[in-house]
Deep mutational scan, measured.
Amino acid sequence: MGFKLLSKLLVYLTASIMAIASPLAFSVDSSGEYPTVSEIPVGEVRLYQIADGVWSHIATQSFDGAVYPSNGLIVRDGDELLLIDTAWGAKNTAALLAEIEKQIGLPVTRAVSTHFHDDRVGGVDVLRAAGVATYASPSTRRLAEVEGNEIPTHSLEGLSSSGDAVRFGPVELFYPGAAHSTDNLIVYVPSASVLYGGCAIYELSRTSAGNVADADLAEWPTSIERIQQHYPEAQFVIPGHGLPGGLDLLKHTTNVVKAHTNRSVVE
């Protein structure tokens, strides 16, 4: 069995187990497998329904001669939608809004960016022009300005110390501490036991640490421990890039980060 097929099978099995364990909360999309990078042309966006009122959005972007996937989250909030992270750029984010209108038909009224990198804030200006209120932590807003990236308009308070959590509509926002970046936030959907790890969490097929220019490698494993301790009931975990899975993604990420750190020390 090929690795790609095995990865998709694991996603399907995880979703099936969740649907059985929580039949009222989960209505997993039966329309197909989780979209992969090879299936999404740059400039297009796919939506994948995880649970009743919960979707991931998947886009792709060219970077350094390669094409990478990027995940975000959409959560229903009454007759409105909360968006977590842009679709990595203005063109993708405009396509995301169009796809949401086509498939869901509810307005996106608020959006949260989970850290300051372009795959999370690139497209904020498109959201703002569409009347979406954009939010991020003060740290993310400051770092985005320093980096020359787009800056969300509103500040999220109460997320300055490791372990801080605040309720934001249908989700809980959690600051686990520094990891992929010093400002990275985690998003949890309690009604569906869905954990969105953003770039602080890796997919299972990833074996290298990737972009760690703004990471705190020493603190990252401790931050992941905080996530595990705060959300032990999480059933569906979405990484910032690639295929979702279960809580095993947290341990896998820790292993990859520690291996990278150990290699760096040896070198």
Rank of each mutant, 00 (worst) to 15 (best):
F3S: 11
L6K: 15
S7K: 10
K8T: 15
L9Q: 15
L10H: 15
V11E: 07
V11C: 15
V11W: 08
I17D: 06
I17G: 14
A19H: 06
A19G: 11
S22H: 10
P23E: 09
A25R: 14
T36N: 14
E39P: 10
I40Y: 05
I40L: 15
L47T: 06
Y48D: 07
Y48S: 10
I50P: 04
I50E: 02
S56H: 08
H57Q: 05
H57S: 04
I58D: 03
D64H: 10
A66Q: 15
A66H: 15
V67K: 15
V67A: 15
Y68G: 05
S70K: 02
G72C: 03
G72E: 02
I74M: 05
E80L: 03
L82C: 02
L82T: 07
A87E: 00
W88A: 05
A94I: 14
A94L: 14
L96R: 00
E99Q: 14
I100E: 01
I100V: 10
P107T: 11
T109M: 11
S113T: 07
F116K: 01
F116M: 05
H117N: 01
D119E: 03
V124L: 09
V126R: 06
R128T: 13
A129G: 11
A129M: 14
A129Q: 12
G131W: 05
V132W: 01
S137F: 01
S137G: 05
P138M: 08
S139V: 13
R141H: 07
L143D: 01
A144V: 07
A144F: 04
E145M: 14
V146Y: 13
E147Y: 14
E147W: 15
G148A: 07
N149Q: 12
I151M: 09
I151V: 14
S155I: 13
S162A: 14
F174Q: 00
F174V: 02
F174S: 04
S181D: 01
D183G: 02
I186M: 06
V189F: 05
A192R: 10
V194P: 00
L195F: 07
G198S: 06
E203M: 01
R206K: 15
R206G: 14
S208L: 12
G210Q: 05
V212K: 07
V212T: 13
D214H: 12
A215K: 07
L217R: 05
L217S: 05
E219Q: 10
W220I: 01
W220K: 00
T222P: 08
I224P: 01
Q228F: 08
P232H: 09
P232Y: 08
Q235G: 08
V237I: 08
I238A: 02
P239F: 03
P244T: 03
P244I: 09
G245R: 03
L247K: 14
L247E: 09
D248W: 06
L249R: 02
H252G: 02
T254N: 14
V256I: 13
K258D: 08
A259D: 11
A259P: 09
A259F: 08
N262L: 11
R263W: 10
R263K: 15
V265M: 10
E267L: 09
